[in-house]
Design a protein around this nucleic acid. Structure first.
Length: 455
RNA sequence: GAGGUCGUAGCUCAGCUGGUAGAGCAGCGGAUUGUGGUUCCGCAGGCCGCGGGUUCAAGCCCCGUCGUCCUCCCCA
């Protein structure tokens, strides 16, 4: 039976040239992360479900769960559940799935830190690059498997880290030549607004969703929705509440906020960060930035490209208590995650992928004689003795010359070595520059010398 | 989770109001017996995503399913 070659939904294969681009981006990120003293770690692709559950809020349903292996279906409770008329996924799921694919790299980090606390020294700065999985419906810039490039600092409260992260972002986008802005806010400010206006938890939740999408909806539906959220109690106060809220949200500076009654404590860390940011052009104070992930408690930021419609290409924030869920108290964390696929998309759009063809020189040995061994040892000889960075391929079989040249052409070789029966007899070899079409005949023994000197 | 779009040769796509498939590119062979980005000629390549239904007849219509791309929600 023939099986149709196709990927499952939402995942992609990568062609060599796509992989080359990714590596271009990843090399830059790794270099910058390392330069700022972050250490590389790795965690498994899947985690215990209890590690993952309860940390992502609404999006929890996007977790990929892994069916248990073995005889779990014979378990009595599962049998009862399966036979019962009442089908309740909430009851069955934990019986048949106890593992899940990681949803991000932050929660696994919290687990990792709690688990290995004795082997780590704090503050712990780490970077991690890896795939994460979300059972989302795919669309532009959104996949079920994608790569996050994370930096996090665990075990330090100071806002120096926010500033450091901003420096890293700045370095990176300059390095790759991308125009983007970091939107920044602090959840403490939103909480303070809530307190000031005496909003209850459900109102806060609804409003946070609303302000997050303010840019996308009309002013009219914004104020309609806002009225609806605020006006579920009958008193006249609601109207002033509405006006107060609008007034506060229109603030463009921290001073503005303080004047409107937001306590200093809520704003001072953001103030400090803004004052010390690397590049004022880069940063935008954005009161409407919320971010959905439940675990953030302080600074939040999002990196958005200018003129490219792809959403954010990175995001992060401060989470004050993530490790306490794993029994490690009073461990503050802050991190940021770059989304590899979306960065790739941006570079693609802007056509700024002129990654200098590496300084490797590509040589192909054409296959014109029966004795393959001689070609293999020719390659070995050159690789061992040449002082240049060479990539050397041997055409796999003896065949027509023009075919071999076509292969060389398509694979962008720089030089071809022509060594056939006549050269073999005379102890010569031809080296042809495939860009200039120029060809030279050398003594076989002089080949390495020639390569070192002339190419 | 809601809505839309598309699925035909390796790739990009045509295929009329239903009458059992076509182009370009790529591949292979030749013109050209050891010199590549051009040209010309030829060859091969298809469960028309999969399953069911309607019909004398389905690539085309209907239902389901898998996948693609996109919008909303949310997010990297």
């Amino acid at each position: 039976m023939k099986i149709k070659p196709a990927n499952p939904k939402g995942v992609k294969d990568l062609l060599p040239r796509e992989m080359a681009r990714r590596n271009y981006i990843l090399d830059k990120l790794r270099e910058i992360f390392s330069k700022y003293a972050y250490q590389n770690i790795q965690t498994p692709a899947f985690e215990r479900l209890d590690t993952l559950m309860g940390k992502y809020g609404e999006d929890e349903k996007l977790l990929f769960k892994i069916l248990n292996s073995g005889e779990y279906l014979h378990d009595e409770t599962v049998q009862t559940l399966l036979k019962s008329e009442i089908y309740d996924a909430k009851e069955i799921t934990p019986k048949i799935a106890t593992k899940g694919l990681r949803y991000d790299l932050t929660v696994p980090l919290a687990r990792y830190v709690a688990q290995h606390q004795n082997d780590l020294s704090f503050p712990f700065k780490r970077f991690q690059i890896g795939a994460v999985w979300r059972a989302d419906r795919p669309q532009k810039g959104r996949f079920q498997e994608f790569t996050q490039c994370d930096i996090d600092i665990v075990g330090s409260k100071t806002n120096l880290h926010e500033i450091e992260i901003l420096y890293i972002i700045n370095d990176f986008i300059q390095e790759i030549g991308l125009k983007a802005k970091v939107h920044i806010n602090d959840r403490k400010i939103f909480d303070a607004i809530g307190q000031l206006l005496k909003l209850d938890d459900s109102q806060k939740k609804q409003i946070s969703i609303l302000i997050d999408k303010k840019e996308k909806i009309s002013a009219e539906s914004y104020s309609n929705e806002l009225t609806e959220i605020l006006a579920n109690e009958k008193d006249f106060e609601d109207n002033t509440k509405f006006n107060n809220f609008i007034d506060i949200m229109n603030s463009t500076t921290i001073d503005d906020l303080i004047q409107k009654g937001i306590p200093k404590e809520a704003t001072e860390s953001l103030q400090f960060i803004l004052e010390n940011a690397p590049n004022p052009e880069l940063i935008q104070f954005d009161l409407h930035l919320v971010r959905g992930l439940d675990y953030y408690t302080g600074t939040v930021f999002e990196l958005k490209p200018i003129d490219i419609n792809i959403g954010s290409i990175g995001g992060g924030g401060r989470y004050d208590d993530l490790t306490s869920l794993f029994g490690l108290e009073r461990m503050n964390g802050i991190g940021f995650s770059f989304g590899l696929e979306r960065i790739e998309f941006c570079l693609d759009q802007k056509e700024i992928f002129e990654f200098k063809s590496s300084n490797m020189i590509r040589i192909i040995i054409l296959h014109l004689i029966e004795n393959t061994k001689e070609l293999i040892s020719l390659r070995k000889n050159i690789l061992e003795n040449a002082s240049k960075n060479l990539i050397i391929d041997i055409y796999p079989e003896k065949s027509k010359l023009d075919k071999q040249f076509q292969y060389a052409d398509k694979n962008k070789f720089d030089y071809a070595l022509i060594y056939g029966d006549s050269e073999q007899k005379q102890g010569k070899i031809n080296i042809k520059n495939l860009k200039t079409f120029q060809q030279e005949t050398l003594n076989l023994d002089d080949l390495t010398k020639f390569i070192n000197k002339n190419i």
